[in-house]
Amino acid sequence: MITDNHGRKVNYLRLAVTDRCNLRCFYCMPEEGLNWLSRSELMTYEEMLQICTLLVKMGIEKIRITGGEPFVRKDIMKFLTSLSKLKGLNELTITTNGVLTAPYVPELKKLGVKSVNLSLDTLDAGRFFAITGRDEFANVMQTMEELLKYGIEVKLNTVVMEGKNIQDIIPLVELTKELPVSVRFIEEMPFNGDGHIYTGLKWNYVRILEEISGGFPGIKKVPDPLYSTSYNYQIPGHKGNAGIIAAYSRTFCGTCNRVRITPVGELKTCLYDDGLLNIKDLIRQQAGENEIKETLFNVFNSRAKDGWEAERLRVVHKGVHESMATIGG
């Protein structure tokens, strides 16, 4: 079991397999995209499997595959198949924008993937194009339908943005009436990769809840699962539920059980730090398993208390300006 220096259990890895994406959501990256990583800079599947195998031995029980968009990387299903066979891994999940995902759903079901986070910021095709810069709304909705058809749990991730999709909050919650989906509204964060100064949060978790409560006065708070990053709510008679993730307010740091590995192998023990160790470099230097384990334990034992401290301790980036695509959603 991995425990950090604040007594928090660490059993969840978010692994980004690529920085590339087939959408251009303005809150994640500039419209022209990023300076994409070269193949040599990316971790290979073999390197990722090696580090995942080691981390599962150390106590990681859940792995979420993210990006960028995972399904733009070639042979992703072969890698997922290998991961699904790791002894000791209890849960394999994926975060996707859904553009390319629908054809893979039957195979994901066979691999034992029980839950998928699907990014969906609006139920309107026009606003979808305005937010993402791409006309892919129909493909995303097809992915949701396929996931539900195959009995895979669907969590819809919606970033709440002033002047962009506020009018979608109520319709998205209404979706939970007939569909067994969980809609999670996420505070906007300063990870869009264009170097602009983040001017602050207009829609925090309190205001989002007020908006939802105005449309659904009967909404009730329900118990939050262990390690939950969302405040969770149920509307009587609805098949699904709603949640709010205070991603910028960072109210859930005290129970954080997760670490991240970026596409280039940077280990982040907090979304807001600037990378504490490059695991890919250790592997390519042919470090032994015990050396890597000891190095990892040292990093876990110097973890920031919360996201605010992690941001204050940043060295490489003065302030938070990198793209979420380079971090791993």
Rank of each mutant, 00 (worst) to 15 (best):
K155H: 11
Q234V: 12
C253Y: 07
Y27D: 09
N204C: 07
L83H: 02
S82M: 05
G126N: 14
I152Y: 10
R303T: 15
E187W: 10
K62S: 06
P180Y: 09
Y248N: 06
T101M: 11
N11F: 07
T251S: 13
D194C: 15
L15E: 00
Y198H: 09
E69W: 07
F252Q: 08
Y231D: 09
Y227E: 10
E291Y: 02
S213V: 14
K220G: 07
E32F: 11
V56Y: 01
T96Q: 14
L156E: 03
C52Q: 00
I131Q: 02
E322Q: 14
L100P: 05
A287F: 07
A325N: 12
E266M: 14
N192Y: 10
T66K: 01
L179W: 10
V159R: 07
N298C: 11
E294H: 07
A102C: 10
E91F: 06
R303S: 13
F128C: 02
R258Y: 02
V316L: 15
R250I: 05
Y248Q: 13
E322F: 13
Y227F: 14
T122R: 08
R24D: 05
N157I: 13
R73I: 12
L92I: 03
D4H: 05
T81C: 06
D274L: 04
I235L: 08
D135V: 13
Y198C: 03
T229K: 11
E146Q: 15
G151C: 05
I212S: 01
L226Y: 09
K87S: 12
G288T: 07
V116H: 06
V259L: 15
P30L: 14
A242D: 01
V259K: 02
E266V: 05
M48Q: 05
L118S: 00
L83T: 00
I94Q: 12
T122N: 07
L123G: 04
V56P: 01
T176A: 03
P225E: 08
I327C: 14
T96N: 13
A16D: 04
D281K: 13
I235Y: 04
K239T: 08
R284P: 08
G215M: 09
T96E: 12
E146H: 11
G200L: 12
G243V: 02
G319I: 10
K305S: 05
D121K: 06
A246M: 11
K74R: 15
